[in-house]
């Protein structure tokens, strides 16, 4: 009985910790919107109502869904390409030396400038938008994979050799697994770049999609609608980040355990 009460109290404290600050911020927003009567700052309830009106409609199928599909397609293609090329380059010191300066340069190019370039090369259709996402996302994945593959522990590599483990088994159980922390770090960077590129490729040249719609609202001074779009993008970012965390946790379970063990925790 008392134990149950303790658990309930703990749960209550936890809920308070999670909700207190967001509730306070929303209240502040409300107060600010009510007192300023600023045209640009609608009250949170107005944004919520608009959100439901704007996005719980065919717009979610026409604009939001295709954007997300392009985002995921581009990200997945970049992941496959980046890991495959990165493994090849990381396994060969000569190839790495040969390609390193060129790759470092392309990694340093801010990905959004590729948008106008690729519009020239590939037009303004879906393929261009996916291509933009691939071309921007591939660099962090590729270079991190190279680093990870290169850093395979020499003792473990010798162990594999002495037990005559080679070819595909070696690639799968040694190289890719030991590089997985770096590969996941690259994928994480690439995911946030993918969202940026999805939005701006639609803002720059498009007649549909999330980025396009939000800019249209802003140009038409439909302020609550614009805010609802910002909220939707925020929620999309949050959802992708949570999904990625889940995948990362299961892939890198061993890595976090190992780190905790070597730190003596």
């Amino acid at each position: 009985m008392s134990r149950g009460g303790g658990a309930a109290a703990r749960l209550g404290r936890r809920a308070l910790r999670v909700c207190a600050l967001p509730a306070g911020l929303v209240a502040l927003w409300w107060a600010a919107a009510a007192s300023s009567r600023s045209y640009y700052l609608p009250a949170p309830d107005a944004v919520a109502v608009t959100f439901a009106e704007v996005w719980f409609s065919e717009r979610i199928l026409a604009d939001a869904l295709p954007s997300v599909v392009r985002l995921l397609a581009g990200f997945a293609l970049a992941a496959v390409l980046g890991v495959a090329l990165g493994t090849a380059i990381g396994s060969s010191p000569r190839l790495r030396a040969f390609t390193e300066p060129v790759l470092e340069f392309w990694r340093a190019v801010p990905p959004p400038v590729l948008v106008p370039l690729l519009i020239l090369l590939a037009g303004i259709d879906d393929a261009m938008k996916v291509l933009v996402i691939v071309s921007g996302c591939v660099w962090p994945i590729l270079l991190n994979t190279v680093e990870g593959v290169r850093a395979v522990d020499p003792v473990l590599a010798d162990t594999c050799r002495s037990y005559r483990i080679s070819g595909f088994t070696r690639l799968r159980t040694l190289v890719l697994r030991s590089a997985s922390p770096q590969i996941m770090a690259g994928l994480r960077q690439a995911l946030s770049i993918a969202i940026i590129l999805m939005v701006i490729s639609e803002m720059f040249a498009s007649s549909s999609g999330l980025g396009f719609t939000i800019v249209q609202f802003q140009r038409g001074f439909a302020i609550p609608e614009m805010w609802s779009g910002i909220v939707l993008l925020g929620l999309l970012g949050l959802a992708l980040s949570l999904a990625f965390q889940r995948v990362e946790r299961s892939v890198l379970d061993w890595y976090h355990g190992l780190r905790a063990a070597t730190r003596g925790e």
């Binding site: 010798d158 050799r161 002495s162 037990y163 005559r164 040694l174 697994r177 061993w254 890595y255």
Partner: peptide
């Protein structure tokens, strides 16, 4: 490395597959 030879290294932590 011949097929009927096995090696045990000093660095046990690094010669085992952590994953």
């Amino acid at each position: 490395p011949p097929p009927d030879m096995a090696v045990v290294f000093q660095e046990y932590g690094r010669s085992l597959f952590a994953w």
